[in-house]
């Protein structure tokens, strides 16, 4: 029985993740590659005439390569045709990283699929623990709840950001991110599973608490990235997360209930 549930969740996650991964490659990755041209650059001074324009990719690429000594000479142009600078992250520069082009695309789709599998397993697990089965009637609602708890609520404090945007300490952000998911999930559980009217007050307190506490977020005022690029990225990322969660809920509804007559 455990094996069947795990298999059902893994299959649902793979299906949702592959679709999401392909959309991510087409709609999100080009924005990340465009942003990497600005990585390692200082924020542009107030002279907007000198600020890199989105269409001015050739000079941007040169500037970025000069500004970021860690930039390797990978050929981004295979993927987008307009990017040439590599990421100069603060991580160990000698560590393995996927080659630009096919390998990077492969690993991005693979990891997106794996994270969807992880989310699908967690959602299925929680449905058994909370005694609220995921059915063909409520699969999409489960997906929406997953989106609210894991994607939307954390994004209020820590919006999805492109590479190169100044950010607070990674461990603090991860702790706040995880804590916000727990609090929001608990709030949803209270509203759905409890019956006293006070549950709304307690749920609201849990949902709001992480935001009152405050996310470890640095206002992005000093970023060299064009605001339009950042806002487009945040919007598409959140939209894509919604698609992923809806697909996870929808596919789980079918893989966990293969026949309408005998769901177990």
């Amino acid at each position: 029985m455990i094996g069947r549930v795990l298999l059902a969740a893994i299959l649902a996650g793979i299906a949702a993740g592959l679709v999401t991964g392909v959309i991510q490659h087409v709609r999100v990755t080009p924005l990340i590659l465009a942003a990497e041209q600005y990585e390692g650059m200082q924020a542009a001074p107030h002279d907007h005439a000198d600020a890199p324009a989105a269409g001015d990719t050739a000079s941007v690429a040169t500037d970025a390569s000069a500004a970021a000594p860690a930039a390797a000479g990978h050929d981004h142009s295979k993927m987008t045709g307009d990017a040439a600078a590599s990421a100069g992250h603060e991580h160990d520069a000698n560590a393995w990283m996927p080659q630009e082009g096919f390998e990077r695309t492969f690993y991005s789709i693979l990891t997106r699929t794996l994270s969807a599998v992880g989310f699908a397993l967690m959602l299925a697990g929680l449905s058994y623990l909370a005694q609220i089965p995921i059915t063909r009637g409520n699969g999409l609602i489960w997906g929406v709840c997953g989106f609210i708890a894991v994607s939307l609520a954390p994004a209020i404090g820590l919006p999805p950001v492109l590479p190169g945007v100044p950010e607070a300490d990674i461990t603090m952000r991860q702790l706040w991110w995880g804590g916000t998911i727990l609090c929001t999930g608990l709030a949803i559980w209270l509203v759905v599973r409890q019956s006293q009217w006070q549950r709304y007050l307690i749920a609201a307190a849990f949902a709001i608490a992480p935001h009152v506490f405050g996310a470890p977020h640095i206002p992005p005022g000093n970023s060299p990235l064009p605001a339009a690029l950042a806002s487009e990225f945040a919007t598409i990322s959140l939209g894509l997360s919604l698609v992923m969660w809806l697909l996870i809920g929808l596919f789980l509804a079918f893989t966990l209930n293969p026949s309408k007559e005998n769901a177990a």
């Binding site: 990421a87 393995w96 990283m97 990077r104 690993y107 991005s108 997106r112 994607s151 990322s237």
Partner: peptide, 11 residues
Amino acid sequence: NAAHDTRHATG
């Protein structure tokens, strides 16, 4: 590094 783009895209 393997999950870099996915981590950004997923938030």
